[in-house]
């Protein structure tokens, strides 16, 4: 009975949604004048950032990113609160036994390259797809690999906190620098450079690096916490 009601309701919802979205249309621009062109041109001409998504995420709508980073920060904080355990339990290992030697040595060799890959992704955030979030996630995944293959691989919580906090502070202080220099938070204070140069886009690349470090530390913290949760 309940399922039937839900199914009927979902069908109605689906009909409405399909109706409006197919009405909106696919593959065409739906509005006469929007912010899209402003972003594209602004990114190319003013900011000299080739990846428009990056320039939107970091500069045009950089406030969203600040919030987003905060969301992850909060998530790791809330996770720590939810899965809190007394001190004596923390020494527990993440996995019961180590993996085979093949996997272990493979992971050992892969780990630096994964971290490097992550670093590459967020350093080139303004040139190619990816950026702070993706790079940070990749690094965190690398840590995860180590955590689950080795029996007692541990990540220093303090060090994570340091990285996280400093990266966050860096982000905000760059924003505040814009605030003090150009009277607008997150405004660019460095030279823009040339399109498609590694050192282009001024403050954007640096902010994305900060975001990358922060996200990496936060996600590692999340994974670490949730992995060490055992009954």
């Amino acid at each position: 009975m309940k399922k039937a009601i839900i199914l009927i309701s979902l069908t109605i919802l689906g009909v409405y949604l399909i109706d409006i979205f197919t009405g909106i249309g696919f593959g065409t621009q739906h509005f006469a004048s929007g912010v899209k062109d402003a972003y594209l041109i602004g990114s190319k001409e003013t900011l000299r950032v080739s990846n428009v998504v990056t320039s939107i995420v970091v500069n045009f709508r950089g406030f969203d990113t600040l919030g987003e980073v905060t969301v992850l920060f909060l998530a790791s904080m809330a996770l720590g609160g939810i899965l809190y355990k007394k001190r004596h339990d923390v020494g527990e290992r993440s996995v019961l036994f180590p993996s085979t030697r093949i996997v272990m040595s493979g992971a050992k060799l892969l780990f630096p390259s994964i971290v490097l890959l992550g670093a590459y992704v967020f350093i080139h955030g303004h040139l190619s797809p990816g950026g702070g979030f993706q790079g940070g996630t990749i690094i965190a995944t690398g840590f995860l690999l180590m955590l689950i293959t080795y029996r007692n691989y541990s990540v220093s919580h303090n060090r994570l906190s340091w990285v996280e906090s400093l990266a966050g502070v860096l982000f905000i202080s760059l924003g505040l620098a814009g605030y003090f220099v150009h009277d607008s938070f997150l405004a660019n204070v460095f030279p823009e450079g040339k399109l498609n140069d590694l050192f282009s886009g001024g403050v954007i690349g640096i902010i994305y690096v900060a975001v990358g470090f922060k996200v990496a530390a936060e996600l590692t913290g999340i994974i670490y916490t949730i992995l060490h949760e055992k009954d």
Partner: peptide, 18 residues
């Protein structure tokens, strides 16, 4: 929507980045 080398002038073709 990425102005990588060789695609600097495809502005009109680019999908909506927002």
């Amino acid at each position: 929507p990425i102005f990588s080398p060789g695609h600097e002038n495809e502005l009109a073709k680019m999908v909506d980045p927002v």
